[in-house]
Design a protein around this nucleic acid. Sequence first.
DNA 1: GAGTGGTCTAGACCACTGA
DNA 2: CAGTGGTCTAGACCACTCG
Lengths: 253, 253
Amino acid sequence: MVSSFTPLPADATSDGPAFSPLYQQIKTLITRSLRSGEWRPGELIPSEVELAARYKVSQGTVRKAIDAMADENLLVRRQGKGTFVATHSEQKIQFRFLRLKADDGETGNVTRRVIDCRRLRAPADVGRALGLKSGDTAIQLRRVMLFRDVPVVLDDIWLPGVLFKGLTAERVAEYRGPMYGLFESEFGVRMIRAEEQLRAVAADSIAAELLQVKPGTPLLSVERLSLTYDDQPVELRRGLYNTEAHYYRNELS
Amino acid sequence: MVSSFTPLPADATSDGPAFSPLYQQIKTLITRSLRSGEWRPGELIPSEVELAARYKVSQGTVRKAIDAMADENLLVRRQGKGTFVATHSEQKIQFRFLRLKADDGETGNVTRRVIDCRRLRAPADVGRALGLKSGDTAIQLRRVMLFRDVPVVLDDIWLPGVLFKGLTAERVAEYRGPMYGLFESEFGVRMIRAEEQLRAVAADSIAAELLQVKPGTPLLSVERLSLTYDDQPVELRRGLYNTEAHYYRNELS
DNA sequence: GAGTGGTCTAGACCACTGA
DNA sequence: CAGTGGTCTAGACCACTCG
């Protein structure tokens, strides 16, 4: 048993710890196992019955915890098979974070071209966003994404040097598939969610050349902060999207 | 009872109706009552126990239906009080659909200025988006939103004429609060969710003047299709956002 | 204190998967 | 067929709100 269902009996402190339901505690325990690597991306986790026995709670409580984690895209349920750890390296989940769509609906071939990859002392703003100490090294990775061989996205990706030790341009270039799949399988860093800030900006000469547009062309600027477990920031990505023939899709609810 | 829990006994047709769980059927029934106006925005709906009796199912099943509808922002649960129909006319829910934030975090005063409001035959693209027949009339409403007295958003709002009979510029101008609150209380049209397409564009002379920027300034173009119950489109909104000192915030998960 | 939603349990049965 | 998640029920008790 994780803790009593009523952690605040008679002698509770006045501003004591907030009441936390059992299923929330189970969620925390499962998350811990995910973070520690006990169950890795793509793997099957124990069945609800097993977990209920392990945590000494009812199956219904485990179910509620897993339900919540499935809603957050941490786990994936498959009826008849079991529950799996979510992964970015999967055809169906591909491009979960890329909201760009082509006007004609046809996605076509997507290719990635690495422009540059270097390690350097993190600039102040980058360091602040990633929670680095001043002087810590960061990796700057610049790349272009092409849709049907037309450059559409220019990304400047900043990563904490500590977490991505052996990352090189070659390593990235030879990897097929989404970058987050690489991060996950090679460096054990799993992106959970992200926050983006969008703006319209004018293309400078460098961006204009790489995206093959005229300087001054309006581009969609997308600054993304990616977070892993416990909302720890692990990537700052500055993207410039050419929206001549593509749009950024969003759903409000 | 809505229907038997197992709607496919021995004599089911080979490609018969897909299996639909009870709580899903309850959801449909509750949604019907919302759409019909039996429970209006802001009102208290019957308690879970009452609904369970009404639909002849267990409280747990009603609970699951309401849980789902609360997730979709159709209902709002308040412990100890009851379950309420969601509404746009509420301080806390204000600006649920407006993702624009100020760089410095300070929202400040928001005011709206109506530029124009006219009824006309719907242009082809607008009619198509709203599902109108050719020749149907549409309302075009143009307005500017000012943050701390600075114009930041220029909206072109298109509405089906049939649904918004008495809508005039004066009516809009004198209304304090979000437009969706007005739609909901005056015309019985409730916005549920919306889909947006974002692009970066250059300001034309008209937009430049209304937003007080130089022609050619990059602006964030936001085309929004708003939907009510059953995903029926009821508004097409074309916005131009000045992102000099504001950004469009989005969360990916 | 009565009434509401929130949590937890135990047990039944259904739907799906794969050996 | 056994094992998995998915649905449904009934009942207990807790936390919150308001009169």
